[in-house]
Amino acid sequence: MTNTKEVLKGDEVTLDIEPGMNILEVNKKLAQKNKDILKEHNVQAIDIMGSIGAGKTSLIEKLVQKLKNKYRIAVFKGDLTTTIDADRIGRHGVQVLTINTGRECHLDANVVARAMERISLKNLDLLIIENVGNLICPAEFPLGTEKRVVVISVTEGPYMILKHPFTFMTADVMVINKKDLAETMKIDIKQLEKQAKEVKPDVKVAVTNALTGEGVEELIKVLEL
């Protein structure tokens, strides 16, 4: 609602307008629309966020391998350029759509809505969306998925959660990847879990090695798939 009040000043008028417009609300509304469409078609959707090199694509490969006989799966792969990762996931025989953002550091509900128009939601049970490798910006832009997963790896050091608490607050599930390197990196995984629960008490945690597939069953369980 726009409220106006005029103040006279010479032949010029000063006008105070109160748009009360929330800029972030625009994406939120689009996200809600995506959510409604997905629900209508009985499609479960997951948004996977994480830094560059955390292991998001490797994890998705393993998830797809294990779940492709149970669900009809599609993957949206957000990247600035190239289809390298999409090709990796596509090898497993599921539909993959690359969303090249050009220069943008995150996916938003609008680009996801456009991608959703290009796939057949009727023939789909599970939509996995891999966000652009970035631990900050994507957290501000919900896409309309039911669940959000944040992937971190032990090679990113012991302070990822403490340095990015606001990102972890938006997560339903946290994956600690590259568990095989924890000892080499001198990382205490239990400490990472504790920090995550402190920031987001109801977050569910899975500890994985995406290369071997260790812990992926645990992830499937916490994702309730």
């Binding site: 010479g10 010029e12 008028v13 000063t14 006008l15 307008i17 109160e18």
Partner: peptide
Amino acid sequence: KECTIKSIRILKQQ
């Protein structure tokens, strides 16, 4: 969690 344009003051010809 908001980023709101609360108000704007403009000048216009009377």
